[in-house]
């Protein structure tokens, strides 16, 4: 298949922006975490696309690292969510404003 890197990058950028929008507009922490996953995916896509452009394995290697990181991040994040829910009986991010400066 003939391919242009631009269009894949555009897709990655679009997914990333959607992820950001999700993180900002959602109040529920679970949704925010999901949106973060979307963003991570988008950056993984960008890496893989770049790797395939030069036919090098590095892009995929980076994607694997991102995957590992995402797994760790999700496990910690979900544990935190559980804990927050137990402490505050709510998943509303706006209720967690105790660190106000």
């Amino acid at each position: 298949m003939k391919s242009s890197i631009e269009i894949v990058m555009l897709l990655a950028g679009l997914l990333f922006v959607l992820g950001i929008a999700g993180v900002i507009i959602r109040k529920n922490i679970i949704f925010m975490l999901l949106s973060v996953e979307v963003m991570l995916n988008a950056s993984g896509l960008a890496f893989v696309a770049a790797g395939s452009r030069w036919a090098q394995p590095d892009g995929q290697v980076m994607f694997i690292f991102i995957l590992a990181m995402a797994a760790a991040e999700v496990s910690i994040g979900l544990a935190l969510i559980l804990q927050i829910y137990h402490q505050h009986k709510s998943l509303d991010i706006d209720k967690l404003k105790e660190m106000k400066g």
Binding site: V23, M32, I93, D94, L96, K97, G101
Partner: peptide, 10 residues
């Protein structure tokens, strides 16, 4: 600006 609101930071 240190509102403590995560969304503002993002």
């Amino acid at each position: 600006t240190q509102s403590g609101s995560l969304r503002w930071y993002i």
